[in-house]
Amino acid sequence: MSVDKDTVNKIARLSRIAISDEEADKMVGELNGILAWVEQLGEVDVTGVEPMTAVIPNHLRLRDDVVTDGDVREKVLANAPAREGSFFGVPKVIE
């Protein structure tokens, strides 16, 4: 599989990374180089192999249903680039 410029632009859009025309051109070559290289994985026989889920045997612990956190608004908002009162401000979203 190889990517063309349209695909690169589509991936950039999905990634929410603005990309210039020249960058897209350059990225086509870079991505294709990397993809061509990783595609050697296709030659591995993985019949009957389950994809790895946990690298070290461990089980998922579950937390008790107790309120132990939250109510830290100042900490949550401390680094906001556009704080509006008790809210984060973002450019107006029109539904």
Binding site: M1, V3, T7, V8, I11, A12, L14, S15, I17, M27, E30, L31, I34, L35, V38, L41, G42, V44, V46, V49, E50, P51, M52
Partner: peptide
């Protein structure tokens, strides 16, 4: 670059060929 690669290998139609295969190889 890595975000773009990661987005691509997880995107519709490529997930199994890339990501699932890689996790199987990882298991091996």
């Amino acid at each position: 670059r890595r975000i773009m690669i990661g987005t691509y290998v997880l995107s519709a139609g490529f997930y199994d060929a890339y990501y699932t295969q890689a996790q199987k190889v990882r298991a091996l």
